[in-house]
Amino acid sequence: MNAPIYTLVRGDDWRAARTIGAYHGSADDMRDGFLHLSTAEQVRESARRHRSGERDLWLVAVDPAALGPALRWEPASGGRRPGLFPHLYGPLPMSAVLSEVPLPLGEDGLHVFPPEVP
């Protein structure tokens, strides 16, 4: 298995996804036409930029090998951030999910990540 990749999911969206067996993305994902994912090295910055201060946020670890050709590695939109980001062109099946953990907010207002995320 390759290193996990991650997506940040709002609580209501994640509970709905578990009920139907797949996550179809946030409003931002739907607008852009793909699910935004991040590597372990990218996910903290993604949380800071796009989910800052949000409560009831989940960190979902995904097995990239389970996603097949629907997973593409591409530059961030507009090239604003260096490197390639994993983008999923289709729903995220629960069978590809390795783990799911809540991301509480610390006293500093930043999300508290599990120790395995650098």
Results as ranks from 00 to 15, higher is better:
61 A>G: 08
4 P>K: 04
41 E>G: 13
8 L>V: 08
48 R>I: 13
5 I>V: 14
69 P>I: 06
1 M>W: 04
63 D>T: 14
90 G>L: 12
106 G>D: 04
2 N>S: 15
116 E>R: 09
44 R>H: 12
86 P>G: 06
68 G>D: 07
69 P>Y: 05
95 S>D: 10
89 Y>M: 13
30 M>F: 10
76 A>H: 14
87 H>A: 14
87 H>C: 14
60 V>G: 06
11 G>R: 04
34 F>V: 11
99 S>Y: 10
62 V>R: 02
105 L>K: 02
89 Y>T: 02
64 P>T: 06
18 R>Y: 00
40 A>C: 09
73 W>D: 11
36 H>G: 08
105 L>W: 01
79 G>H: 05
65 A>C: 11
116 E>K: 04
26 S>K: 05
95 S>C: 00
42 Q>D: 08
45 E>H: 13
113 F>N: 03
83 G>D: 04
95 S>H: 05
33 G>F: 08
111 H>K: 04
75 P>K: 02
54 E>H: 14
3 A>C: 02
6 Y>M: 09
15 R>Q: 14
21 G>F: 09
85 F>L: 15
58 W>L: 09
92 L>Q: 02
14 W>V: 01
24 H>T: 13
28 D>R: 15
84 L>H: 07
16 A>Y: 02
51 R>Y: 15
16 A>I: 04
38 S>K: 01
12 D>T: 15
65 A>W: 06
28 D>I: 09
88 L>K: 02
15 R>K: 11
2 N>E: 12
1 M>G: 12
75 P>G: 05
75 P>T: 08
22 A>P: 01
49 R>T: 14
40 A>I: 04
50 H>F: 12
46 S>Y: 14
4 P>Y: 07
24 H>Q: 13
23 Y>G: 11
